[in-house]
């Protein structure tokens, strides 16, 4: 691919079939991109994730034209940081979510969202076997859909709108403590599903 002019291979790449894939397939795909840079694989990941990343960024309140720009930056960093991805540690969607979150906030605040570094992140010993993250990830998605409405609401307002506890409290006209306890209850349920009985609290 190195010998072809830039962009020449685009048409072939975007025609690759985007048949329905399970979450684990996307993580395997990102895992192989982590092992070896490959434009074909990257393009498939792009076609699946870029439209979702843009949807997320728009919901956070970034304007339409800026959202396009931030989406492009996020997807570029997927390529640049792919070698730091570990499929046994997190689903592809989770890893890409954190990139999108950090870069959207950086853009909105002109300040880097404080993070513990990816190096430390990758050093945390994984207790799950390979592939298990995907099963869990699908179960988390199901669990979110089963949360009581009031709990789901505070989760959505947090993740999709980036609202603080205080902001949610004034929007819903409920005390700060109620916002926090709803979030805790939701979190508790999601964790039970995530870790089962092995989860150490």
């Amino acid at each position: 691919m190195k010998n072809t002019p830039p962009g020449e291979d685009v048409d072939n790449i975007v025609q690759l079939s985007q048949a329905d894939m399970a979450s684990s397939d996307w993580s395997d795909l990102l895992g192989s991109l982590a092992a070896k840079p490959d434009k074909n694989i990257y393009a498939r990941l792009f076609n699946h994730f870029a439209p979702k990343v843009k949807a997320y960024i728009l919901r956070l309140g970034v304007g339409v034209s800026a959202a396009e720009e931030v989406t492009q930056e996020v997807m570029l960093s997927v390529w640049r940081k792919a070698h730091m991805y570990h499929p046994e540690k997190a689903a592809a969607s989770t890893w890409i979510f954190t990139l999108a979150r950090n870069q959207s906030i950086d853009w909105m605040r002109k300040q880097k969202y404080p993070q513990y570094s990816l190096d430390e992140w990758s050093e945390t010993a994984s207790e799950s076997g390979q592939g298990e993250q995907e099963v869990l990830s699908d179960r988390v998605a199901k669990a979110i859909s089963q949360l009581p409405e009031k709990q789901a609401q505070v989760i959505y307002m947090s993740y999709f709108e980036g609202r603080s506890h205080g902001d949610i409290a004034s929007r819903l006209d409920i005390p700060l403590g109620s916002v926090k306890s709803r979030i805790r209850l939701a979190s508790e349920k999601l964790k039970q599903i995530w870790g089962g009985e092995n989860y150490e609290h």
Binding site: A50, P51, K52, V53, A55, A90, T94, T98, I155
Partner: peptide, 15 residues
């Protein structure tokens, strides 16, 4: 991972 699941659940926007 909750964020990841929520990202996956979003309707695609045209890029």
């Amino acid at each position: 991972s909750v964020g990841g699941a929520l990202l996956e659940s979003l309707e695609a926007e045209t890029v």
